[in-house]
Simulated assay, not measured.
Amino acid sequence: MIAFDFEYCKPSSAAEAVETFNMFREQGKNAMYFSGGTEIITFARVNKLRADAVIDIKGIPECNVLKLHGNQLVIGAAVSLNKITDSKLFPLLGQTVKKIADHTSRNKITIGGNMKSELIYKESVLPLLLVDAKVKIANGSEEEIVSLDAVFNKEIKLNSGNVLLQIIIDTSYIDLPYVSLKRTKISKVGYPVVSVAAIVKDNRIRVAFSGVCDYPFRSSEIETIVNDSSLPVYERVEKVLAHLPSKIVDDIQASRKYRSFVLKNVLLDTLSELEMVT
């Protein structure tokens, strides 16, 4: 049960959504955008989140698109994880999001919601970082397309009131050799101890991580190490662990020592598989 009242709006356009957000802000009310709603509901029930108004973006046509358009794959922010997997349009993304939560939850969890999650994992971001994805953002009555890198630094950072509408991926990336590996504490469903996505592009391995540090990341320094064929694979893996961007997470899912052990094995598996196609 959610222990507070809030206003609910479902605009039919991006401009209307931003206008509605700004209206609430001018009234001194705390408004937030809503797509799948699973996280809002979960946190609101335990009093970790409170809002005066929620603005449902599922009524915005652009947010529900999932299609190939010329040389681009366009994914609306309100498209569910299951729909992405079932479409088979981008196998790496499909396999990665298939491991997030259980099947029923993935009918509601949207890619935009997962990308902007309050949790540290945001696993759907991993393939998008690897393929130089772009995002379409509504800013008032205007829309702009920018690289994901321009708005993602540990998390997606948009100006207040802006709406994430779409993710755009060049189709030259979608059929590249890939690996998607996730290790959890007990079952196949759960928060990752380690989650890794990797592809081979121009004979080089690109790799992104979740669960290792307290934010998802891709590192050019780590990719230089991973692709240094002058070193044995095991030495490269040890070197990667010495060049992580921050401390390895130590929490209820896994100790720092155990996470390090799991990460080593996942990296060994990843390099073993992908070096056969480089």
Rank of each mutant, 00 (worst) to 15 (best):
K10A: 14
Q95N: 11
A77K: 07
I57R: 06
P61R: 12
L89N: 10
A78T: 04
Q27C: 05
F6W: 06
L81F: 06
E62Y: 07
L73K: 09
A77C: 04
F90D: 07
Y8L: 01
S12Y: 11
F43N: 15
T110K: 13
F6C: 06
I100A: 11
N82D: 12
K108H: 11
S80V: 09
E7N: 07
I40T: 08
G76K: 09
G36T: 11
G59F: 02
I41R: 05
P11T: 04
V54H: 05
H103W: 14
V46A: 10
A51V: 09
S12N: 13
E62H: 10
K58G: 07
E26F: 10
K88W: 10
G37I: 08
S80E: 05
V74F: 05
N82V: 15
N82S: 12
A44W: 08
G76C: 08
F21R: 07
S13R: 04
N114L: 10
R106I: 04
M23P: 08
N22M: 13
S35G: 11
S13F: 06
F34W: 04
A17L: 12
I75T: 04
S80R: 01
D56R: 05
T42Y: 14
V54Y: 03
L49T: 00
Y33N: 07
T85M: 14
T110V: 12
A77T: 06
R45G: 13
N71Y: 01
M115A: 15
I109V: 00
A15N: 13
I41N: 09
T104G: 14
E19P: 04
M32K: 14
M115L: 15
T104I: 15
F34G: 00
A31W: 01
M23I: 14
F21D: 06
N30I: 13
D86P: 05
A78V: 01
L81K: 04
Q95W: 03
T20D: 04
K108R: 09
P91M: 00
